[in-house]
């Protein structure tokens, strides 16, 4: 019996190896040269490198959907889209980016602040390729840095939270106190306290980006401690939203993307990132011969950030709350309102 298994294995391996041999001859072989192929057609090849998964209902998915929207708009035959996920480790991300670059991708989007280092190193070797990353500000000759002003949406959601809370306590389920999460939380706190000084904002951090169970438990503790409107960022937020959804009369305010699908009766409003506009802009710049070097800002003033109300709960939000949010939004757009950011 065991001998039979072994022979079977040997035969299978032979099949595999001969198959590999025939495969080698096929034209699909990837180019081994490090120089990208010249793309003469109108088609643009875009590669996306993600720290988590493209279905995380947060940061990564919002960009993926943005790219899908671009592909939809320009036509499927005009945009080639490739995605690599779960590349939180900078070494693996570097390999992926370099591989895409050598395969002749025109625009490589590394969707995370942690990729700045890797891009700075790879980009000079591929001067004809455009690279992009964010959140960040350090652009390079062929590197775009994009920078969503998460604090703006945070502020508006803070205004909304202050108007909506009945208990006078709002809670923030934070991931790790850094980067976008801090910007968002700072904006949120200012929005709440400038609207109603009496409302308490309680900020807590889980110390993780992806522990959805932990985020859910933190949301439950927030609610047990009296919070009735909650918010929070990063991909773990979905766990918190689901936990809030369990309790009637408690609300969640989303960021990154519209997350109302998870709890339709709970998510009041969302700060949504319109990545498709930023990507379209990069494609446009590239067509004009600008391969990078720009610090692209996503903000309410140019519509790349947007506040979306959940239609299903529209009647739950009083008119004066919506007016207050709209007023703050106009002040942000006109530059009248400055939101402070953490400084040492």
């Amino acid at each position: 019996m065991k001998r039979l298994v072994l022979y079977l294995l040997l035969i299978m391996s032979l099949v595999v190896f001969t198959a590999c041999g025939t495969q080698q001859a096929s034209p699909s072989k990837e180019p081994t040269k490090e120089t990208p192929k010249e793309t003469k057609s109108e088609k643009i090849k875009i590669a996306l490198v993600l720290p988590s998964t493209m279905d995380d209902m947060a940061w990564s998915q919002s960009m993926y959907e943005g790219l899908k929207a671009v592909q939809e708009k320009m036509g499927k035959d005009k945009v080639d889209l490739a995605v690599s996920e779960r590349l939180g480790n900078a070494v693996d991300a570097g390999a992926a980016i370099r591989q895409y670059a050598s395969q002749g991708y025109d625009l490589i989007i590394a969707h995370g602040a942690q990729y700045q280092n890797v891009l700075k190193e790879i980009a000079p070797d591929f001067p004809k390729t455009s690279f992009a990353y964010g959140t960040g500000f350090q652009a390079g000759p062929n590197i775009f840095a994009y920078d969503p002003q998460a604090q703006e949406g945070g502020y508006l959601l803070g205004v909304l939270a202050a108007m909506m809370t009945k208990s006078g306590v709002v809670g923030v389920v934070g991931p790790v106190e850094a980067g976008d999460a801090v910007k968002f939380n700072y904006g949120f706190q200012q929005g709440v306290t400038k609207t109603k000084a009496s409302v308490k904002v309680r900020v807590a951090y889980t110390g993780s980006f992806n522990d959805i169970v932990g985020a859910g438990e933190m949301a439950k503790v927030h609610m047990d401690a009296g919070a009735d409107v909650l918010t929070g960022s990063s991909q773990q937020a979905v766990g918190a939203i689901r936990a809030v959804g369990e309790r009637p009369g408690k609300y969640w305010l989303s960021t990154d993307m519209d997350q109302s699908k998870i709890a339709p009766n709970t998510v009041l409003a969302a700060q949504a990132y319109h990545w498709e506009k930023i990507v379209s802009k990069m494609i446009e710049l590239r067509k004009q011969g600008t391969l990078g070097g720009q610090h692209l800002i996503l903000s309410f003033s140019d519509g790349t950030l947007e506040l979306k109300y959940n239609d299903k709960l529209a009647d739950k939000i009083p008119k004066e709350a919506k007016d207050a949010v709209e007023k703050a939004k106009q002040q942000i757009i006109s530059g009248q309102l400055k939101i402070e950011l953490p400084k040492k």
Partner: peptide
Amino acid sequence: YLTIGQANMYADNITAGR
């Protein structure tokens, strides 16, 4: 318990070291 009892959803790496 994590998916049915606690989170009522599933996401990648849901156990997070537990």
